[in-house]
Computed example of a mutant assay.
Amino acid sequence: MFSGPERERIAAALAEIACAAGEVLRRYHRGPCPHALKADGSPSSAADIEAEALIVAALAARFPGIAVIAEESAAADELAARPSQHFFLVDPLDGTRDFLAGTPDYSVNIALVAGDRPVAAALVAPGLGRAWWAGDATVEASVIEGHPGAGRPVRARPAPPSGLVALGSRRHGDPETALCLAALPVSETRRSGSALKFGLIAAGEADVYIRCGPTMEWDTAAGDHILAAAGGCVVIPGGGPILYGRYRAGYRNGPFAALGDPELAAGLALPAPRGTGGGPEQPLTAAHR
Rank of each mutant, 00 (worst) to 15 (best):
G95E: 10
Y106P: 06
N109G: 01
L100T: 05
R97S: 14
A122T: 10
A114Q: 13
L123E: 04
Y106R: 02
A121P: 09
V90C: 03
V108S: 09
L100E: 05
R97F: 02
R97Y: 03
T103R: 09
G102L: 08
G115T: 10
A122Q: 03
G115D: 05
N109S: 15
V113D: 06
A122I: 02
L100M: 05
Y106C: 03
V108P: 02
I110M: 01
D98V: 01
A111N: 11
N109I: 05
D116M: 07
T103N: 00
P104H: 05
L112T: 12
D105F: 03
I110G: 01
G102D: 04
T96C: 02
L123W: 01
D116G: 12
A101C: 06
D91G: 13
P92Y: 05
P118H: 03
G95F: 08
A111E: 01
A101Y: 00
F99E: 07
A122D: 04
A120Y: 02
P104D: 10
D98I: 10
V113W: 00
S107L: 09
S107N: 04
L100K: 00
V90N: 07
D105Q: 14
L100Y: 10
G95H: 11
D116R: 14
G95L: 04
D94T: 12
L93D: 08
R97D: 11
I110L: 13
D91N: 13
A122S: 12
